[in-house]
Structures are given as C-alpha cells and as structure tokens.
Computed example of a mutant assay.
Amino acid sequence: MSTEAAPDEAVDPRTSSAFLVNESLGYLVPAALRAAAVVGVADHLADGPRTPAELAAATRTDARNLHRVLRLLATRGIFEEDDSGRFRLTSAGDTLRSDAPCSARTAVLMNTDRSMWLPTADLSRCVSEGTSAFEHLFGLPFFEYFAQDEETADVFHCGMAAMSDAENEPIAAACDFPPTGTVVDVGGGHGGFLLAVLDRHPGLRGILYDRPHVLAGARLDTPGTAGRWSTASGDFFSGVPEGDVLVLKRIMHDWEDDQCVTLLERCRAALAPGGRLLVVDAVVPPGNAPHQAKALDLLLMAALVGRERTEPEFAGLFEAAGLKLSRVVPTSTVLSVVEAVAA
C-alpha cells in the first residue's frame, strides 16, 4: 500500500471552471456595496422597507439600476427583498446607515475608494516586480499622495476611524495598562482608541501623536477625559513622545521591515524604564483557514509597501530594534495585541 498522501478528490473540470468564473466575479459585490454607500440608500431604510422606486426618488438615482445593485447585495444578506418587491435592511447591513452606532459607511467608502481599488486591479505588477502598484498609477507613494490630496486623505482618515470604532473598546479591554502613567498613541489618528483607554483607566494620561492635519480631527475632548490628554505632532520615524506604554495600532502593517525597525527603535528610546510597547495589528495565522489579514495583506501589497505579519515576523522585527516579544494577546476582533519590552 502506498504511503503517499492521497490527492485532492477529483473534480469535474466543468465544476472547477464554473467555480473559478464565479470567484472572478466577486469584485462586483464591493462595487455594489460602494454604490449603495455613496448614494446613502441605507439611510432611507431606517424606518422600514421601501420599493426601489421610492428609494430612487429619495436618493435621486435610477430606480431600475438601483434595484439591480440592491438585488445583488441581497444575495449577501445586506438587504432583503420581500415578495412585494420592497427592500429592507438586515441586521448584517444595518451599519451601512451613516447614523448607525459604529457605522461602517465611511470604512466601506475608504476600502473601495479609487486610491485602494485601482492598485488592486494591478496585483500582477506587484507579483512580477515586487513593488506597490500605487506609485505607478498615481505618481507618488501612498502617504505622499495623501499629503497633497486633502479630499482623499479625509476619506482615508475618516474611514480608518470608522473601522476602529467597533474594535476600540474590546481591544482596550484586552490590553493590560498600569493604573497610572502616560500612554502614547503613536500615529493614533483621531484618537478613538486612546479615548477608549482613558475611559477605562481614569488614572492614566494620554498623548495623541500624529501629523498636524490628522490631529485636527481629534475627538478626545470629553468630560471624562478632561485634563488627562494632550496632542503632539511630528514624524514618528524621527522620534516619538516618552511614555510608560506606547501603542502602535494599525501602523506597522503600512511599512517595510526596515522602516518598521526604525520606528520600533524610536519607540524603544521613548519607553520609560519598565515600559511596554503594544503593537495592535492582525497576526496572520498559519494554515488555510480564512482570516481578514490574508485579504488585507493584498490591499497593503497593492497600495502601500507594508504587509500583515506572523508572530515570528513580529519577533524578528522586535529583536532587530532592541526589543523582545513578551506575549501575544488575542482579542474578540481580527486584531491582536503584540506586546514588547526592552531587551
């Protein structure tokens, strides 16, 4: 008897062909989702089901084509069409409303923006040349382009804030913060995560560190955080403010390994004695199971220069920067807390 592994179960070529053709059409779902988000159709379903004609009148769109978009999204459980031809929002699609708690609308608009969408159509360039497709299409690297295109930058930062809103509280709950001290959120955007941390830990102070134009959207000014936070601006590759706990949330995956080592070195220099660095990012799991990190990794490959990383890859970057990985704390989100201390 042979001891070799059994081959995959034989599949009729016609079945395989139909499967692959169907997979190749998958991009039409996010395209339809973007169309629905752009015209704000979900906002007009908050009070109950409506016909495509009613929705078209409310959104000033074409009824027939809007119906076709909603029909496809109904196959993914975002909307549901009843026997009378009216559409309603499902619980899965409810946060497409702009006024929903933890609204995903601006995150959808960011993920499907042309700055993200167009590079992914050129993944073959990334594979062939080992480089991002973004600069070839837009003439500048990702963040340099954003620096001179205020409208696109606003889409990105608002979208990132929306992506974070649903995950900030559970991640803050999973992190081990000291009762007192200073937390520095490096590249912390509008401050949603730092706000969740300060709300949970009244003895902590926080510093939100980012570029000046990003800090203009800071939302830390609440009664519960009064007097316990400040902002600081600068380039985190040059230096970061000192603190007892430094946080890098969804930052390292934007950059190449050598850039990450530079950033980590700046963080190590800014750590108070006994301090800790918390890298909040997806950790790519082994095996063939689906994970959002495996999909987002391709978006990063196409549009930026970074990548999602495995636990050993994080450990290697920490070691190169004079840090050591102390533990990885999973959360109820797709992100984990990768904790490092001075080596």
Rank of each mutant, 00 (worst) to 15 (best):
M1P: 04
D8M: 13
V11T: 15
V11F: 11
D12M: 02
S16I: 11
V21P: 07
V21H: 13
V29N: 08
A32E: 03
L33N: 06
L33S: 09
A35F: 08
A35Y: 07
A37V: 11
V39W: 08
G48W: 02
G48Q: 00
P49M: 09
E54Y: 05
L55M: 01
L55A: 04
L55Q: 05
A58G: 08
T59Y: 03
N65E: 15
R68K: 15
V69G: 04
L72M: 10
L72K: 03
T75Q: 15
G77K: 03
E80Q: 13
E81H: 02
E81N: 06
D82K: 05
S84T: 09
S84E: 12
S84G: 11
G85E: 01
R86I: 02
A92N: 12
S98T: 12
D99V: 15
R105M: 02
R105C: 00
A107Q: 13
T112R: 08
P119T: 07
D122C: 15
V127M: 14
S132M: 06
A133D: 07
F134S: 01
L140F: 11
Y145M: 00
Q148Y: 09
E151F: 11
E151A: 14
V155Y: 05
V155E: 01
C158W: 14
C158Y: 12
M163A: 13
S164E: 08
D165H: 15
N168M: 09
E169G: 10
E169R: 10
P170F: 04
A173S: 15
A173M: 13
A174F: 03
A174Q: 01
C175T: 06
D176N: 11
D176Q: 13
F177T: 10
T180F: 04
V186H: 03
G187N: 02
G191Q: 01
V197R: 03
H201V: 03
I207L: 07
P212V: 09
P212Q: 11
H213Q: 10
A216Y: 06
G217H: 14
D221S: 14
A226E: 15
G227K: 07
R228F: 04
T231Q: 15
A232V: 07
S233Y: 02
G239E: 02
E242C: 09
E242R: 08
G243S: 05
L246P: 03
T262Q: 14
L264P: 05
R266P: 14
A269E: 13
R276N: 14
V279I: 04
A282I: 01
V284W: 04
P285I: 05
G287I: 12
G287A: 07
K294A: 02
D297F: 07
R307G: 06
E308S: 03
E311R: 06
E311N: 06
P312E: 00
F314H: 06
L317C: 08
G322E: 00
V329H: 06
V338Q: 12
A342V: 15
